[in-house]
Design a binder for these strands. Structure first.
Lengths: 229, 229
DNA sequence: ACATCTCTTTGACCTATGTCAAAGCGCTTT
DNA sequence: AAAGCGCTTTGACATAGGTCAAAGAGATGT
């Protein structure tokens, strides 16, 4: 299992663990890979363990009866998902599909709980992880319930440019259709708002390349809810 | 601190702990009480610990720039809140006010983390707690993003009647204004939908007393998204 | 019983955003 | 280069649900 062991480095969840724990994790972790579009689990499936993304990307989402989807997360290398059903013993609360060719590590529920029982650091890491996610969900709820689409979009563009370090560029990391679903809207609406923002000189968007021309303007929309004329 | 100790019984988070741990918790727990309407903490406040509700009720919510509120939870006796900032070290992610005269126990962050470090059962209980809450948030996100108000209301009425055991009665546990905020809408809209449901013979509502007259009908709205004429 | 206050209901209106349909535009495949 | 395919954009339209204003209806203290 040397290959598994090597992949545990740099995973936030496993930070600060003893060598012993690393070995134990390497022993119980199982490699798995998914092609782009492949389903990893469905809402309601029995949760027999959780996953860590090694390479690639995973989309976690809910689907309505009419087929509209709301994306809850994208998870990339080093991030974990599916933990919730490890600790509640219920089925998975949402669907997961590979958003790209993806390599995963799977950790079976019972073995993992046994490890946590012996290692408070691992427990605290996991608590930090779930807390972080709870905070993020609270933000998403706030956005969906209290903000309009232009505000959510402006916020996302600013977030992107912040994450990339580059203050003016924002390279979309998902298709516009997926971005719509992440923001809780539909592609048509997103497209119209991007067009408006272009017209207002706030951004210049060419495909997935979006240049921020007027950061204060975007900020005013994101934070103060200023309207787009 | 004998009084504190007595109040720890029956709190799910502390279930299955050793007597020693109980004592330790009793030692670090601090009693605090809040009058109805009193603010317990505000979003962004430094999180120096978390709370357990002994008696009364606490409302956790987000407020928009324009003053509209979205309720995330109501917590009653035995439930805990404010844990997220214990484990992320960041400020509280939302506001908390007492929804009634409320008695609380406050557990300071560092002392509590020390306890968790020594007790895997407590860690696992907390993990279960947070996981449960994550699941609930995922449901709220789904509702807000993918369902319409009548669906959310029908679901809530069915949930109430289920919780009370009584299949036909649903005594609202919050004011209609608060229910609107919980469902992600405003009082006017809620009122109109209740009126419609009355007209359709689905329910009969007199004040906070709502009688379910047509459960299959409500079910069809809650689950299949059937429209109210 | 009265005055006051807050919550709820109703009406008229408005707007953000969703639906449906049709082009347009890049890509990849042949 | 042509053809095919999925994504994105645009237009015309529909509507759920929000805003504003006023009236009703309970509750509470005097």
């Amino acid at each position: 299992m040397k290959e598994v062991s090597g992949q545990l480095a740099g995973i936030p969840l496993f930070l600060g663990l003893s060598g012993e724990q690393y070995d134990a994790l390497a022993r119980i972790g199982v490699r798995r890979s998914s092609r782009k579009g492949e389903r990893i689990f469905s809402e309601g499936d029995e949760g027999t363990g959780f996953y860590v993304v090694v390479t690639g990307r995973v989309k976690i989402f809910k689907v309505s009866a009419e087929g509209k989807e709301q994306i809850l997360h994208f998870f990339g290398p080093g991030e974990s998902f599916g933990e919730v059903s490890v600790f509640t013993g219920q089925g998975f609360p949402a669907d997961a599909v590979a958003a790209a060719q993806t390599a995963l590590l799977f950790f079976p529920r019972t073995s993992f709980i046994a490890l946590i029982r012996n290692d408070p650091v691992l427990a605290l890491n996991m608590l930090a992880q779930l807390s972080q996610r709870l905070r993020q969900f609270a933000g998403l709820i706030e956005d969906l319930s209290l903000k309009e689409v232009p505000e959510r979009l402006a916020k996302y563009l600013l977030y992107l440019s912040g994450r990339d370090g580059d203050a003016r560029a924002a390279e979309l990391d998902v298709s516009k259709g997926q971005l719509a679903s992440l923001l809780g809207t539909i592609p048509e609406t997103l497209s119209r708002i991007l067009t408006k923002m272009n017209r207002q000189g706030l951004i210049r968007s060419r495909g997935a390349q979006i240049t921020i021309l007027d950061r204060p303007g975007l900020d005013a929309i994101a934070s103060e809810g200023k309207k787009l004329p």
